[in-house]
Amino acid sequence: MSAISRRKALIIGASRGLGLVLANELVRRGWQVIATTRQGGGELQANADAWHGRLAVEFLEMTSPEQLDALRERLEGNDCRLDLLFVNAAIDRGDLPIHEVSTDMFTEVMTTNALSPLRALETLRGLVAPGGTVAVMSSDQGSISRNTEPGYELYKASKAALNQLMRSYATRHADDGHTKLLIDPGHNQTQLGGPGAPLIPQESIPNVVDVIEAQTGAPGLQFLDRHGESVPW
């Protein structure tokens, strides 16, 4: 078995859309992949069955610290060492101006899109091998300098918060030897992106994986698009 075929990844949030395509693309490239979902069955489990052990499914509600701890304990019990920890999670509750957003909606979106991904990284980072990569699916919607058109104020704010928290994470763990990435995959046809988006995950995700593999070992934190170009903060 080659060194490449032994690479191992954990994808948080892979039941559908970008996360599902990402898990499958990594397996196609010889990675051993663990992918999480909140519920059993579905396309992820069907793909896991088809890959004959190269794609394993774990159950996780990412917003639950207790479930994150339990996942870490299960993986530690299996002596799991990761080359890639990738967190893919986002929700959108519609295109409302911020003064029409309820406190509950604000809390839900910020918890899912910003707080929980960083909790996941902090809980699971100890599983990442020296020289490994921690990455989060972000969006150019979180770029403050590119926020020049109206709409989706809460979603944009949550992604900007995610980026800022990832910057703090990278500062706090500057000497851990991990590559740290925020990835903008572009506007894709997913449940979140809608059917009218210009991209499909089957086209954009291979580019994302190219970027991940090319950046292995790179120092510091980078905010990159699917072509490996820097996204302005």
Rank of each mutant, 00 (worst) to 15 (best):
M1R: 00
S2Q: 00
S5R: 02
R6L: 04
R7M: 02
K8D: 00
G13C: 01
G13Y: 02
G17D: 06
G19E: 02
E25Y: 05
R28H: 08
Q32M: 09
G42T: 13
G42A: 12
E43C: 01
Q45I: 02
R54S: 13
M62N: 08
E66Y: 02
L71Q: 05
L75S: 04
E76N: 09
D79Y: 02
L84W: 10
L84A: 07
F86H: 15
N88G: 07
R93D: 04
R93V: 04
D95E: 04
T107M: 00
T111K: 04
S116T: 15
P117A: 07
A120F: 12
L121H: 12
T123I: 05
R125T: 10
R125D: 15
L127D: 12
L127V: 13
A129F: 02
G131I: 13
V134N: 04
V136A: 14
S139G: 09
Q141V: 03
Q141E: 11
I144N: 07
R146T: 02
T148Q: 14
P150L: 08
Y155I: 05
A157M: 14
K159R: 11
A161C: 12
S168K: 06
T179G: 10
L181C: 06
I183N: 05
G186V: 05
G186N: 04
H187Q: 04
Q191W: 03
Q191H: 08
P195F: 08
A197N: 06
A197G: 05
I200M: 03
P201Y: 06
Q202C: 03
Q202S: 14
S204C: 09
T216Y: 03
A218S: 15
Q222R: 15
F223E: 06
L224Y: 12
D225Y: 07
D225H: 08
R226M: 12
H227C: 03
E229C: 09
